Structure formats: structure tokens, C-alpha cells
Computed example of a mutant assay.
Amino acid sequence: MNAQLQDAWEAAREGVLVFAEDRVLYLNPVAAALLGVEREKVLGRPLLLTLRDHKLEALCRIGGESTIETRNRTLWAKAIPGILLLWDQTEERNRVEALEESSRVLAHEFRTPVAGMLSLLEALQSGLKGVDADEALQMLYLETQRLRRLVEDLPLTRLPSQERTFALEELQDRLERFLAPQLAAKSAWIRWQIPHTIRANPDAVYQALLNLLDNALKYGSGSEIVVISGEDANGVWLEVRNQGQPLEEFEKLFQAGQRGLHAANVRGTGLGLALVRRLAGGWGGTAYGRALEKGNAFGLTFPRPAGTPSDRQVNQSFV
């Protein structure tokens, strides 16, 4: 083998494997890493035992190029007589998938304020007057501000986190007003028990709690929805509880595009709970679900701020 050519292959960013009569003659460090083998141990061995993938082995026999999933990687592979070239496209695939997921999440995130703004504009166009019109304009202003903050939070224009310490009760009236049409349509109401104070981005908590309440209205049964907070050694927890058939599995519901069996007849994208978990992660908390005796609870956690005494036991956990 030409020494200069071998030096070039050794330094190449692509994986290079040379073979003859179905046996490995040479492979560079990148190819060895992509295939998960040790070079010294595979030289002279059968090609299939080195590749350990029938699709790659077939490509070597028939030639051509293909994108192949193997060893938890996405490989672009091209075979010409006696040579197999490999290029790791895993990161590129992950970036594309992340971009697609972000697009879906952003569409879901924007849908709620836009829908609310359209409803308010329609009410104003229908002739809303006086105090009702003033209240509708105020709500429209708040939703416009929230939409602006969502735009500012896009990856290309992200500003420092607008976290502050606030009482959960601050969100109550705003949520009640926004959900009023849905509550009236289902003859439902919300019982609030949220006396705690947390540190987070209020708009993020509002969006997460709105998604949980929307979830309860869509999929729960019964008229009462309970929003309750509690505190333990780890911090504050906040739950939305609704009546209905207890679920057996919760974790997959927090994955984008996943919906439970109970959602079969309800229109939705399967992104609401995935977004809730993403928002919770932004303030250092998490999102979870659990079954109740006659219903289900979906909750959020808020970590105890650094320096806050943790020996205070307010043992209200999951009452």
C-alpha cells in the first residue's frame, strides 16, 4: 500500500476500510471507532465479522451508497470495489430531529396565546362594551406580552431568565379568565389550594399550569378540578388533580407525540405534557404524573432555593 496514501487515510475524518476476497486488509482509526472494533484484531478476518451488519456487508458486495442505522449510530456508507467509506451522521440526524421537535413544541407554545387573542378579538368585534370591553383589552394586552416573551425566548434571541420569587396565587385569576370558556362549556370549576411561594419564571409556570389544566379539562371527568400545592424537604410541589379512570402508565405521556388510550377520541398533538416537562426543567424542577384513587394528578416540582433551610418539615406531601 502506498505510504502517502495510507498516511492520508490515517488522518482522514471519514472511515476507510479496504478489503479483498471478503477479508479486511486495512481500516483507519475512524472506521475502527465507528464499527466498534480493534484494528489489530480484525485485520485478515472475514469482512462480515468486522462489519457485524448484514446491510453493510451487502453494500460491500453490490456497491453503491446508503444511510444505515447500526450500533446506535447513523452512518452514511459508500462502497466501491475493495473500499468502504463511512461517515458518521449521528450528530446531524440528532440536530435535525431536535429542530423538528423544537418546531413542533414552538407551534404548540404559540397556539395557546394566539387562540386566546383571537377569541378576545372576536368578542370585541361582536360589540363588547363598557367594563367587559376594558377587561377584554387588558387580557389581550397580557396575552400579547406573553407572546412577545415567547418570541424573546427563542434560541436565537434568548434573554437571561426572568426568574423571580412570587406567590402561586398570582396566576390564579389570569388562568381562571383564560379558561372561562372551557370551564363553562364543561360546567366545571377549579378549586385552588396554592398558598406557597416559589422562584421561577412566572410565564413559564403559567404556561405549564395552563397545559395541565387544559389536559384535565380535555381528558378528565367530573366537574371539579383541584389545583393544590405542598412543601417537603426538597421544595414545593404543585399538582392538578382531576376525576376519571386512574391511568396505569404516565412516563410515556411526557414524551413528544405520545398520547394515552384515554385520548383516542380527543383532538390533540401529544406535545402538551412534553412541553410541561421542558418548562419545568428550565427552572430546575420536573414534571410527573400519578394515579389517585378516583382520578389522576399531574404535577410540577420547584427546588428549594440555595441557602434555604431544609430541616423545616411541612409534611403535606401528596395529601
Score class of each variant (00 low, 15 high):
residue 278 R to F: 05
residue 56 L to N: 11
residue 222 G to P: 06
residue 272 G to C: 02
residue 267 R to V: 04
residue 113 P to V: 07
residue 44 G to L: 12
residue 248 E to M: 09
residue 42 V to E: 04
residue 305 P to R: 03
residue 171 L to I: 08
residue 114 V to C: 00
residue 273 L to W: 00
residue 10 E to V: 10
residue 273 L to A: 02
residue 110 F to T: 00
residue 242 N to F: 03
residue 129 K to A: 14
residue 16 V to N: 08
residue 274 A to L: 11
residue 140 L to V: 05
residue 60 C to M: 03
residue 248 E to N: 07
residue 223 S to T: 06
residue 153 D to F: 07
residue 50 T to E: 09
residue 200 A to T: 13
residue 229 S to W: 03
residue 297 A to T: 05
residue 97 E to K: 15
residue 38 E to W: 06
residue 272 G to L: 01
residue 196 H to F: 15
residue 52 R to G: 06
residue 56 L to I: 13
residue 272 G to W: 02
residue 223 S to I: 09
residue 88 D to F: 07
residue 235 G to E: 11
residue 307 G to R: 15
residue 244 G to V: 10
residue 244 G to H: 07
residue 106 L to T: 12
residue 67 T to V: 10
residue 309 P to A: 06
residue 73 R to I: 01
residue 179 L to S: 06
residue 147 L to T: 15
residue 125 Q to G: 13
residue 164 R to I: 12
residue 208 A to E: 00
residue 257 G to L: 01
residue 222 G to V: 08
residue 156 L to G: 04
residue 196 H to Q: 14
residue 22 D to V: 00
residue 102 S to D: 14
residue 64 G to C: 02
residue 60 C to L: 01
residue 130 G to A: 10
residue 121 L to M: 13
residue 44 G to W: 06
residue 212 L to S: 08
residue 213 L to W: 02
residue 67 T to Q: 13
residue 118 L to T: 13
residue 319 V to N: 14
residue 190 I to Q: 09
residue 158 R to S: 09
residue 303 P to L: 08
residue 193 Q to S: 07
residue 188 A to C: 09
residue 206 Y to T: 10
residue 279 L to P: 05
residue 301 T to N: 08
residue 257 G to S: 05
residue 132 D to I: 02
residue 217 L to Y: 07
residue 26 Y to M: 03
residue 148 R to T: 13
residue 199 R to Y: 06
residue 211 N to K: 13
residue 113 P to E: 13
residue 273 L to H: 08
residue 87 W to G: 07
residue 217 L to M: 10
residue 49 L to V: 11
residue 248 E to Y: 12
residue 118 L to V: 10
residue 138 Q to D: 15
residue 244 G to Y: 05
residue 14 E to W: 01
residue 204 A to W: 14
residue 91 E to K: 12
residue 139 M to V: 09
residue 22 D to Y: 03
